[in-house]
Write a protein that binds this DNA or RNA. Sequence first.
DNA 1: AATGCAAATGATAATTGTTCTTATTTGTTG
DNA 2: CAACAAATAAGAACAATTATCATTTGCATT
Lengths: 140, 140
Amino acid sequence: MHQPDHLKNAGLKTTLPRLKVLSLFESGRERHMSAEDVYKQLLSTGDDVGLNTVYRVLTQFEQAGLLVRHYFEGGKSVFELNHGTHHDHIVCLQCGHVEEFYDASIEARQEIVAAERGFTIREHSLYIYADCNKMPCPNK
Amino acid sequence: MHQPDHLKNAGLKTTLPRLKVLSLFESGRERHMSAEDVYKQLLSTGDDVGLNTVYRVLTQFEQAGLLVRHYFEGGKSVFELNHGTHHDHIVCLQCGHVEEFYDASIEARQEIVAAERGFTIREHSLYIYADCNKMPCPNK
DNA sequence: AATGCAAATGATAATTGTTCTTATTTGTTG
DNA sequence: CAACAAATAAGAACAATTATCATTTGCATT
């Protein structure tokens, strides 16, 4: 069992709501979820957790480094498991569907752009906003 | 007078609130402003414009291509004059200094990445966070 | 296993940023 | 300068998020 350890290490009590939220992310059903998404997923499996608790837990998990928060257009936050490896995101403006990508060429160009200006890159965020062109949109 | 022309060309009536908002941006006092920022700036000069009108006008200006909207972290929109040229930003983590850049290669790769996944790009935002390595940092 | 207490939760309300509704006013066109 | 469509202001409505606070829960200590 490593889930409780994650919580313990973060100085968080091992509570039912926290375990439910964490295992939902670890189930892999949805990689990117907003607070509302998590809330509805838990509701659908009978695991009622208050929406405010979901918000609180997500924020705590972010601070503990268990989750990564993304600020997408439309003003809502989306979370995903922090698996350590960098990637960028392409987000559908119609349905909110998110896909990850990694492009070595883009990464390399960024290094060059920074170097040309005398900067040393610490991190970066690239979000492509697009239409997924799927009918109907997966998440809609 | 070119401001009214901008409005006319966009199919927008030349109204007082629109002129006030536009000239505030063109004054150059602040390059990036949220709806709230614009509202307060106008209040401070006695040019009362309702906050809802500010929102409406900003959205219209964005659609007309006069302004560009940025979605910043924290879920609020910020606008700036549209100088016609798309650019990304590199931000110094030490001093907050911001430089704009445009890299055709990165732009092209994004199109490819999106196309490979069946997406049609609407827009994108790329922020590089770095150290500017200038001693002392320009803005510090 | 029972006790105590800090920490966590849930219900509710408050906040923030933004959009909608509708009656009134304003800009333009004839 | 009259008429009519378009734009505005005031206030309500909304969605995402955060705060308040009484009750409950996890967990260390008996």
